[in-house]
């Protein structure tokens, strides 16, 4: 657990207004709660660590952070509290086990309170492999859907 994460800006992925799944309130001006899934794609390299910034433009508040789908990132990642004070959501997680995901992996789900028609963008700050070496990766976000 002594590995460090390199702070680099790897990729910025802007996302426009995301399409809403069925079940989402149709009155987009009203306050509502929506999930947004965050993905990191590390290609064929096992994903050992990641750090990204999620930015919402408009009336957006973070109201919960959930883990991802792969067991390595099942636990909710920690968020940077000082960044949150400035309306920035910076998340990070690492895993040193042998079972790490490859390809496009959902690493977290954000629970958001929104109104109006906000837009979002995701910036990958850093990603690393199982040995702590920097790797190329991309980060994306998508609507999580509401049951």
């Amino acid at each position: 657990m002594t590995r460090s994460i390199w702070i680099i800006v790897a990729l910025m992925v802007p996302i426009g207004l995301m399409g809403m799944d069925e079940g989402t309130p149709k009155d987009t001006a009203a306050v509502r709660f929506i999930p947004v899934d965050l993905f990191v794609d590390s290609g064929a390299t096992p994903l050992g660590a990641w750090q990204l910034e999620f930015t919402g433009h408009g009336d957006v508040e973070l109201v919960g952070v959930e883990g991802g789908e792969h067991p390595a990132y099942k636990q909710p990642p920690h968020y940077d509290t000082e960044a949150l004070m400035h309306d920035r959501v910076i998340l990070a997680a690492l895993n040193t086990t042998d079972t790490l995901p490859t390809g496009k992996t959902r690493v977290a789900r954000l629970h958001l309170r929104v109104s109006g028609e906000p837009t979002f963008e995701t910036t990958l700050i850093a990603a690393g492999d199982a040995d702590g070496e920097r790797i190329d990766a991309t980060a994306t976000a998508a609507s999580g859907g509401i049951e």
């Binding site: 709660f33 109201v63 919960g64 952070v65 959930e66 883990g67 099942k74 949150l84 309170r113």
Partner: peptide
């Protein structure tokens, strides 16, 4: 089996979010 980490917010803001949800 789902785990959601709570967010620290100003007291009134947190209350408002909770009541809306």
């Amino acid at each position: 089996d789902r785990t959601i980490r709570g967010i620290i917010r100003e007291r009134e803001e947190a209350r408002r979010i909770y009541e809306e949800a």
